[in-house]
Amino acid sequence: METTGNILFSGVGGQGILLASEITALGLLGAGFDVKKSEVHGMAQRGGSVTAQLRYGKKVYSPLIEPGCADIQVAFEMMEAVRYLPYLHKGSKVVVNTQRILPPAVATGKAVYPEGLVEQLTERGIEVVPVDAFDIALSVGEVRTANVVLVGAMAAFMPVDGAIFEEAIRTRVPERFLEVNLKAYRAGRDQSK
């Protein structure tokens, strides 16, 4: 791979973005890429908007994605799919969890949750894959695997064999949660087919 691939993860603190980006990174490393990943800890984790940025290629220097250069965005929440629009470009692929998490201003009745979010993306030529990750995770038997469902849905767009992410899940997830996470991953993958 000559150019560097850029994946942006966005969502709400506490949704499991770090694990999802970690599995993605380990998969890509397993496929022989150089990878760098940037996270923000601290203040951002108390239910605020969070991102993780992942870059992979032959040799990666910068850990940060340039605006307009994210090839794939994995959004864990509807509004967080649109918040980072300046990072996307025409043709970017966005895997979006259709869940809505109300920010404080909305929960307290001071603002309304915006409608037509998916259209905001599609009308700019961005390809959107909506995934009801919460429901799928529930159906495989563990709501906390919604993040892995999204990794599965994302994997379909990657230039590598999907099995490498299963390998990454094996490395990263404790034995007793392994089966359910693999199920979640495969169910997510089926969404993008």
């Binding site: 605020g48 307009g68 300046p86 201003a105 603002a111």
Partner: peptide, 13 residues
């Protein structure tokens, strides 16, 4: 570049 779309803020809580 795409301009940002105005959205309700999501500060930490």
């Amino acid at each position: 570049l795409f301009a940002p779309v105005p959205l309700p803020m999501r500060p930490p809580n």
